[in-house]
Simulated scan of single mutants.
Amino acid sequence: MPGNRKSGLLALGGIALAAVLAVLGHLDVNEDLNPWSLTVSDFAVSDRGGVIDAAMVLLAAATLVLLPALRRAGAQRPARALLAAWAAGLLAAAVVPTNEPGTALGTAAYLHRYASVVAFLALPAAGWLLAGPLGGRVAGRLRTLALTGLLLAGAMLWSAYPGDRMLLGLAERLLILAEVALLAVVAAAVARRADPRPPGIDLKHTSTPTVVLSGSTAAR
């Protein structure tokens, strides 16, 4: 099992690569797609199996890499379960596409939407619960990003329904930015955390054995 530092650095690398792929996916799309009003999923479905889908899979994989290290760091089962739900939601959203913009929602699109909602809500909740075990300055950052994510999720839901999709794409991208930043903070905290020592003899606190020689032996 990889140590904490290795797990954290591996996750950070996956997060960084996913961010690069997501940006590339926005640059190489149909010019008619408007990032202010259309979601990332709308961009992904126009390039099915492309770099945006790959970015979602990478983020999910980076999250799963962190789970064993977070268990060793003292993260409780609810926090780890929420992180697993975030990863599962990302994977489901990457595998099951949404509908093409302007078309009616089908079964696959509804599955994609609900998987995305689970992911978007699970990660801020996990970040809030992880603030305690990770502690220090990390705790404040995680709580701030968790609250920011929940507020942006509320703004996105408002835009999707009563707001008539006004600036829906912007709200979602700000939400994704906050959540990816939260995941990166967790990964960096794991990378800085010392690996647990394997069971063994602590030579520093082991007293030197004393050999008592008998008089006859000493005389020899």
Rank of each mutant, 00 (worst) to 15 (best):
M1W: 12
M1N: 06
P2K: 01
G3M: 09
S7M: 08
L12P: 05
L12Q: 04
A19K: 05
A19Q: 11
L21I: 13
A22N: 01
V23I: 15
V23Q: 03
N34V: 08
S41L: 00
S41R: 01
D42A: 15
V45H: 12
S46Y: 10
D47R: 12
G49Q: 00
V57A: 13
V65Y: 04
G74F: 10
A81I: 14
L83G: 08
A88F: 14
A88E: 02
L90T: 06
V95P: 00
V95W: 00
V96L: 03
P97W: 05
T98M: 12
N99Y: 13
N99A: 15
P101E: 07
A104D: 15
A108L: 11
A119E: 02
L121G: 13
L123W: 05
A126K: 03
A126M: 02
W128H: 09
P133R: 01
L134H: 01
G135V: 08
T144L: 15
T144F: 14
L145R: 07
A146P: 02
T148W: 02
L150G: 10
L151G: 14
L152A: 08
G154S: 13
G154R: 00
A155Q: 09
A155R: 06
M156A: 14
L157K: 03
Y161R: 15
P162A: 13
P162W: 09
L167N: 12
L177T: 15
A178Y: 04
L182E: 04
L183V: 07
A191T: 04
R192T: 13
R197C: 05
P199M: 08
I201G: 04
I201F: 12
L203D: 03
K204P: 01
K204L: 15
T206G: 07
S207M: 12
S207G: 13
T208Q: 10
V212M: 10
L213P: 04
S216L: 14
A219N: 07
R220Q: 11
